[in-house]
Amino acid sequence: MSTYNFDYLDELEAEAIHILREVAGQFEKPALLFSGGKDSITLVRLAEKAFRPGKFPFPLVHIDTGHNFQETIDYRDKMIQRIGERLIVGSVQESIDQGKVVEQKGKNASRNALQTVTLLDTIAKYEFDACIGGARRDEEKARAKERIFSVRDEFGQWDPKRQRPELWNIYNGKIHKGENVRVFPISNWTELDVWNYIRREKIELPSIYFSHEREVITRNGQLMAASPFLNMDEEDFIFRKQVRFRTVGDMSCTAAVESEATLIDDIIDEISASKISERGARLDDKVSEAAMEDRKKGGYF
């Protein structure tokens, strides 16, 4: 018999705000990792709710692969202007130019894996001790076991065997110099929760989330946006399709799904009925059953 209306989205929101404020209270130099995707856009909204009318106690950090959808970059710049917060961009192209990483070759080449190096360099350069990310436990089974405060060693590595117990709503953010913590305020949200929240809060999203006509090719059974960033040859056949993207990653590794969904309501209907989980549209997870676990151990988001 609750005397006030506090539904599941309110509860998830309150939990996330609590976590963001713990970051502010416990760390010296936190940052919010912003990808331009709906999850990190949701984080920005939550940060507004946690800290307004004050400034965010952290900058936004975007690891730019150079292979982003232009729509994402446009969205990012417009949003930064609206919220008036600081943006730091870590450039994968710069890491390549400096010889720190080598561009992958072949048809399935993507800069997704290279991001890790740029991310770790950016963390080291600005001495970030906590990085807030939009990962959710429902995305993938390795994530299902990750803590909300997830400690990384100075090499950015996650050790699933050495995770700290996380009890009640108490988050232990104590670390040694060189270590940092990845913080996931929306760990307990599902994809559908995020969409329902975006609808409720009337949050604007990059246009690629909605149905549009685009030139695509078929790669490994999935639709990929035709772009200069994709290694294509004469076997690839470019055609036009009505598509949208369920996640915002690199153009080289984010698959499109056929969709007529032009409104958030359509998307929510589509997801409710959908039989492909979100990461299923990411080629980078398909490599092996333990792909995500391996990448997380190596310092990935």
Partner: peptide, 18 residues
């Protein structure tokens, strides 16, 4: 979830499911 668990066929950590 975790590889060690798949190998040993046991659950060694807290996994959250939704």
């Amino acid at each position: 979830g975790l590889r060690a668990e798949r190998e040993q066929g046991i659950t060694i950590d807290v996994a959250y499911k939704y």
